[in-house]
Amino acid sequence: MGNIENPMVLDSHWPHLEQPEPKVIGECVGCQEDIVNLDAWLELMVDGEEIMIHQDVDCTYQFIADRAVCKGE
């Protein structure tokens, strides 16, 4: 007995649900990796320049750690 494919699960029947290809729109100043249009990101104005950073704790921490001076214990 051959395999019968359910036509409801074939991608060709649901082209309107396909995810678009991600497009690189910038570089994260925190992790230095690409930001694509499917990511969540923040835009900031720093020293008159607009920068982009992933909306992620690690990226934000790295961005601040690279520019801040640690004081105290």
Results as ranks from 00 to 15, higher is better:
8 M>P: 00
53 I>H: 11
42 L>F: 07
36 V>K: 06
70 C>F: 13
35 I>L: 04
9 V>N: 15
40 A>G: 02
37 N>L: 04
59 C>L: 07
32 Q>A: 00
3 N>R: 08
39 D>V: 03
73 E>P: 04
68 A>Y: 10
33 E>D: 15
66 D>M: 14
17 L>F: 12
45 M>D: 13
19 Q>M: 08
42 L>Q: 00
15 P>Q: 06
50 E>R: 09
51 I>N: 01
39 D>T: 00
22 P>G: 05
35 I>N: 01
59 C>P: 02
24 V>H: 02
5 E>T: 09
59 C>F: 05
20 P>S: 14
50 E>F: 12
64 I>S: 06
27 E>T: 13
19 Q>N: 09
12 S>C: 13
54 H>D: 11
10 L>P: 00
6 N>F: 05
35 I>M: 09
42 L>R: 03
49 E>R: 10
49 E>H: 08
60 T>I: 15
11 D>F: 07
54 H>T: 03
18 E>V: 01
36 V>Q: 02
28 C>R: 03
10 L>C: 10
44 L>M: 10
12 S>I: 06
69 V>F: 11
55 Q>Y: 14
38 L>T: 12
21 E>R: 07
60 T>V: 14
27 E>W: 03
16 H>E: 15
11 D>W: 04
12 S>E: 15
42 L>C: 06
46 V>S: 05
19 Q>D: 12
68 A>G: 05
24 V>S: 09
66 D>E: 14
15 P>L: 04
61 Y>F: 15
54 H>S: 07
24 V>K: 08
13 H>C: 11
35 I>Q: 01
11 D>Y: 01
68 A>R: 14
63 F>P: 02
46 V>P: 00
53 I>N: 07
3 N>M: 09
55 Q>V: 01
11 D>C: 05
3 N>P: 00
37 N>V: 00
49 E>Q: 14
13 H>P: 00
61 Y>N: 13
5 E>H: 13
52 M>D: 02
43 E>P: 06
63 F>E: 04
15 P>C: 02
67 R>Q: 11
47 D>A: 11
49 E>F: 07
29 V>I: 11
60 T>L: 15
41 W>N: 01
27 E>S: 04
59 C>V: 00
68 A>V: 11
26 G>D: 05
18 E>D: 11
71 K>V: 15
12 S>W: 05
53 I>S: 08
52 M>H: 07
25 I>L: 07
28 C>Q: 02
58 D>K: 05
30 G>K: 02
18 E>L: 10
41 W>I: 00
39 D>A: 00
26 G>Y: 10
18 E>A: 08
56 D>P: 02
69 V>W: 03
21 E>T: 11
65 A>P: 00
62 Q>C: 13
14 W>M: 08
27 E>R: 03
13 H>I: 02
25 I>S: 07
31 C>H: 02
64 I>D: 01
8 M>I: 03
40 A>M: 08
11 D>A: 09
1 M>T: 07
37 N>F: 04
55 Q>S: 10
12 S>N: 09
52 M>I: 01
2 G>V: 06
57 V>E: 04
51 I>K: 11
2 G>F: 10
53 I>V: 15
18 E>H: 11
60 T>R: 08
65 A>D: 14
44 L>A: 10
15 P>R: 09
8 M>D: 15
4 I>N: 02
67 R>G: 15
29 V>R: 04
56 D>H: 04
29 V>Y: 03
